[in-house]
Nucleic acid binder design. Sequence first.
DNA 1: CACGCTGATGTTATATTATAACATTAAGCG
DNA 2: CGCTTAATGTTATAATATAACATCAGCGTG
Lengths: 151, 151
Amino acid sequence: MLEKNTCCGGHSHTPKNLIAKAEEFCSANGQRLTAPRAEVLKTLARSHKALGAYDILEAVLIDGKKAKPPTIYRAIEFWLEHGFIHRIESLNAYVSCDHDHDTAGVHFLVCENCKCVREAHTASPLKALDLDGFEPKHSQTETVGLCKDCH
Amino acid sequence: MLEKNTCCGGHSHTPKNLIAKAEEFCSANGQRLTAPRAEVLKTLARSHKALGAYDILEAVLIDGKKAKPPTIYRAIEFWLEHGFIHRIESLNAYVSCDHDHDTAGVHFLVCENCKCVREAHTASPLKALDLDGFEPKHSQTETVGLCKDCH
DNA sequence: CACGCTGATGTTATATTATAACATTAAGCG
DNA sequence: CGCTTAATGTTATAATATAACATCAGCGTG
Ligand SMILES: [Zn+2]
Ligand SMILES: [Zn+2]
Ligand SMILES: [Zn+2]
Ligand SMILES: [Zn+2]
């Protein structure tokens, strides 16, 4: 039974599509979709809230057993690297992403009450800046506030 | 002897102005510029790099003695609340701020190598977004990359 | 299939960042 | 001074993240 989504603009929160995309990505790129990786991604994809690493740890079973932190963090790192999840810095937490987008101009609306996260994309804010020799790698905006429900 | 600043566009990193501003702020607002608060702010103002809470802890002496974490975190919280410092989420670290600005449209260029931080201000990225009921409180952009020196 | 290589995971321990809870002290005021 | 309140001191611990090394699984090769 899928949880009703009332805060993220109707995003369905079904992990199916994302897992399918992940399978495709892995086989196309010689990566392995192992049990820890699959469980971590599914857990994030099912949630409409950002989850901390230890929330994920509590939620997943790998071969019927509780995992340990490095297992979770390795899977998180893997999906971060390949753009399937994002880290929400202001929460020390993670959300899945089913968009295709580059690394610039990502904007998160983060509810400080319920931890739901809405992802949006705007023109890169770097455009407006004189970088003066700074070499950007990754740009991310986080707006903390209250979502429609918690407001 | 002031450290030569080569990465932040010539910002002088002298704590004098900021401390003076802080004194003024405190007396105008019935707040106390206590030893822990003063030492923490001075330490951040002297640094052209973001400092973690435990970096600050190692750097300051309060009445000749090393402080303990809560002392540092309380001072950090105080200056954060009053806009004298910022938290760089991607580093879990803090920088001083001698600008006067509101809480929207702050943009940090963060060097992942040397941890120097350049602060810039742009039009609020929220303008470009359909907030759809989301009530923003604080918005911050962090661009991680390499500064001119580390590049 | 044994072998060896590689990448991933398992496991133990510990580092790093941050806060809860309560005791004590210092400032401001009548 | 004696009261009130805000701030700090102190102890302990929570929450987040990683280092280091052992083991295992997949895979190509012979
Ligand atoms: Zn995304
Ligand atoms: Zn909410
Ligand atoms: Zn600032
Ligand atoms: Zn640098």
